[in-house]
Structure formats: structure tokens, C-alpha cells
Design a protein around this nucleic acid. Structure first.
Lengths: 246, 246
DNA sequence: TTCATACTTCGATCGTAACCGAACCATCTC
DNA sequence: GAGATGGTTCGGTTACGATCGAAGTATGAA
């Protein structure tokens, strides 16, 4: 016993329902105030304050004072990835919260996962990019190709600018609703920002779901077509000479 | 609030120190009885029994009755991956258990991670395989090459047999002590089994650490050489035309 | 059958931590 | 300055869950 890092500490941080609600709310990516988080968690401000202190001490949250407000975010994208990983696991065990609520379908269709697009649309986007040869996939690894750089450049994504950041360009993130990978990393973030900037979609209040306008939806689907039928989708692309599929 | 899967439930399962000890012990990969796990967790048998019921109900554990014994294991390798992910996160935040114990160095050198080799030696093995062209890496994705299949076949790994299993052949797993990737998946498992079978190394009682014999260590290091100096190691291999590095 | 071992269930205790009311600071507006 | 809003700290209550002793069930050994 007592081997390795202390998983119990962060487990218990995530294990409290109020704190889990706070973390889930912050998965939306935007910075929220203590008051907003208290409402999200369903507790009073005092209680939320105590939770927020613990989460920050545990390294899960970062805060930034702005006037008399105190804005909280997830500490970094590693926290987001960790939480999405746990969500994926929980979803696979059927531990959905009680019963699917009315907002559930919208959430499954398109939602924000920390800072990038997830849900059916997120998965579709990655599938389409792989099919088009824009992204090269090996197992769980993703890499932008020269074709992809040109392709995305044409819709206004400055790849070379993204590459200067410390953060990996492409990262695969397991989608809890689709149980398949979608695109994360700085490129995933840039793509979602691009859609929001163009007005194709907008964020909804108090929810992680992303609402596409009819026009935006049309354009999105045109930009990311899928040739294969749904049943035949192959998430793990391979190449001659490479053998990774189970 | 109340969006998405219930992360609080599994958070609280992992969040109890006794249960965390049980899970950590089971990361060793071997099936353990309730009595053994009670000892590992530092609680009485009754208490452990209650914990084990909860963990099983939560889908983290699988049990198998054998005579009057009841053997527990992690439910599957996804649980192992989840736990290793949390460990990696916890280690990165400096949440090591209190202070490094006497067993810590051995654990950092070579240990078992569910069913494959981790620690310095695990990371070295993967680095060497990539350098030798046996494994092709793109970001976090790993793939066995034709060269690698021949190479590993020569030391007694039956790759085609492994490929028939449902489980992915190659998978990268983040090492909490080295903070870099090591090889998991059915190939990772087969390699460790191979070393143990050959007597190069053996498992230690009541610990996840792996002990290499002097002869085994010599052979292991010869089989997996490293050309690059330690400082210049490049975890994310790339290929002309592929651009994934930050 | 009898005894021992492995484990579970029951019942009671006990500690901790989540919770909120109230009071207290800090920052902004007027 | 006074008042309002955002947030923290303090104190006391409460409830849940971890814990163990004791008794009960199942399996194997003699």
C-alpha cells in the first residue's frame, strides 16, 4: 500500500456532487464567478466558496481577480482532458446522471468540451478531416498533413500561428456521448472559435451545448462531408505498412 | 448543472483512501483476494468487503469466485488507463503521497502498470523501439511497423496471435513518474510477460515494482539501446509531411 | 459430521465534512 | 462618505459514510 501518487485526494475533490457540478460547469470553457458557480452547483455562496478554495488548493482550478469579481477556470487543458476522460468512463458504465434530461439531445449533438467542439458534430468533423486526408491518424495519435494545413488555411485558420504555442496542435479526445474520438488541441480550439466568429454557431447560456444556426449547420455539413455510411465508419485510420488495428 | 455523465460517483469511489489503496494494489495486475486487499488498504475484512461491493457495483472491479476465495481484478484495461491517467495528473501536481518512501526509487525504475512495464525502463523501451523503427509514433498514437513485427518475432513475441484479440495492439500510456509515454496494449503486456518468462525480471511481493536480475538488466538494456543522449530525447516522433509537434 | 477458513451481513459508533446563517472584508457606484 | 454587490470567514448543526465487533453463510479439509 501507499505506492505512487495520491489518487484519493483528487478523487475526493471530484467526488463531491457540488464540486463535480462546478467542474462540469467549467468544462464549458468560459470563466465563471463564484456566484455563478454556486448557482450551477445548487449550493449557497458560502458553501461554494469553500469548495472553490479546495479545488484551487488541489490544483484543479485557477482564479483571476477582476474588480470585485473572482473568475474561475479549469487550471489548464490537462484538467479538461482528465475530466473528459472520467466522463467517458462514467458514460460507458451507464452512469448517466439519473435519467436523460430534456437538454440531453442538444448536448449529444454539439457541445463544448473545455474549448473545442464535441458531440456528434465534433466526431463528424474529425472523421471528415481524416477522410479528406487533412489529418493523419495512427491509433489515438493525430497529425495535421500539408494538405490539411492548406485546406484549413483556406477557411481562415492560421496554422503556423497555432504552432508557436506550447500546446500540441492536434490531440484526440474521447467523446463520452459518441464513444469515439474528436479533435482537441489548439487546432480544435481554433476551429470552434472560427465557427463562432463566423456566426455559424453560438454558445448557449448555462449549458455546454452549442447551437448551430440553420445556415451555419448547412455550411458546416458541407465543409465536413462524410463519404462512408454511418455503419462503416472507421475511427482508426491506417496506412500501408502500419498495423495497429485490433 | 446536471449535464452529462455523473463524474461525482466514480470520483467518490476513487476518493476514499481505503478504496484508492485497493485500486492501486490492483494496478499490479494480479488478482487478489478480499483478505489481501483488506491488508493492502489497511482496514479490516468487513470494511474491505463493503468497499469491494461498492467498487464492483460502480463497475471498477470484476470478481471471480474460486472455491472459497473471491478474487478481484480491475474490471478491464480501461479502468487501468483511467487510474494511470489520474495518477499522472496527481503526480504532476506534486500530490505524491506525503513523502517519497524507501520503495519509491525501485518503483520509478521499473514497475507494472496494470499488465505492462512502466517507469524509467518502460519509457526507455518505447523510446528505443521508436528509434529502431519498430514502432511508428504520431502524437500519442502508436503503430507497429513491419520491421517491428519481425524484430519482436525474433525474441519470441507472436504478434499475429496478439492481433486476434479485441484489444488494441499498441497503446500509449502516460507514465506518472517519467511524465512521458510508455507502451501499453496487448503488445506491452506480451513484452513484459516475455521478460518475466525468460527470468530477466520478476515481480516483487506486495509491490508494483519489478526487479530485474543483473543478467536480465544487461540483456534488456542491450535489446533496447538508446542512441540519443538523455537530454535530447524526443518523445513525439514525426515524419516528413506530418506536423504535430507543438 | 465437525472444524476451519474465507467472506458477508447486521448493528452501532464515531468523525468528518458539507451545509447554511450571520457577521465580516473588499470593491464599485453614486 | 453611504449604500450596494461580490466574496470570505466563523460557528454550529446535521447527515452521511467509514469503521469495526459480532453473528451469520458458504466452501473446503479432516
Amino acid at each position: 500500500m501507499k505506492e505512487g501518487p495520491d489518487i484519493a485526494q483528487i478523487g475526493s475533490l471530484i467526488g463531491d456532487p457540488a464540486r463535480a457540478n462546478i467542474l462540469t460547469a467549467l468544462m464549458g470553457g468560459r470563466a465563471l464567478t463564484a456566484t455563478e458557480l454556486a448557482a450551477a452547483a445548487g449550493v449557497t455562496l458560502q458553501t461554494a466558496s469553500a469548495h472553490l478554495s479546495k479545488l484551487e488548493a488541489g490544483g484543479l482550478l485557477a482564479q483571476r481577480k477582476q474588480g470585485r469579481h473572482r473568475y474561475f477556470t479549469l487550471a489548464d487543458d490537462r484538467v479538461g482532458k482528465l475530466l473528459e476522460g472520467i466522463m467517458g468512463f462514467a458514460a460507458s458504465r451507464g452512469h448517466l446522471r439519473h435519467r436523460p434530461g430534456p437538454k440531453e439531445p442538444a448536448l449529444r449533438k454539439a457541445r463544448i468540451c473545455y474549448d473545442h467542439l464535441a458531440g456528434d458534430y465534433g466526431v463528424r468533423m474529425l472523421d471528415s478531416l481524416i477522410e479528406a486526408g487533412s489529418i493523419f491518424a495512427v491509433g489515438e495519435g493525430l497529425s495535421l498533413t500539408a494538405i490539411g494545413e492548406k485546406h484549413l488555411g483556406s477557411i481562415g485558420i492560421d496554422v503556423s500561428g497555432l504552432r508557436s504555442s506550447r500546446r500540441p496542435l492536434c490531440r484526440s479526445c474521447l467523446d463520452w456521448s459518441e464513444r469515439r474520438a474528436h479533435l482537441a488541441g489548439s487546432l480544435g480550439k481554433a476551429l470552434l472559435s472560427n465557427f463562432l466568429d463566423k456566426g455559424w454557431a453560438r454558445r448557449t447560456e448555462n449549458s455546454r451545448s452549442i447551437f448551430f444556426t440553420p445556415e451555419g449547420e448547412r455550411r458546416f455539413l458541407a465543409l465536413f462531408p462524410l463519404e462512408l455510411s454511418d455503419g462503416a465508419r472507421q475511427p482508426e485510420a491506417s496506412q500501408p505498412g502500419l498495423t495497429n488495428t485490433p
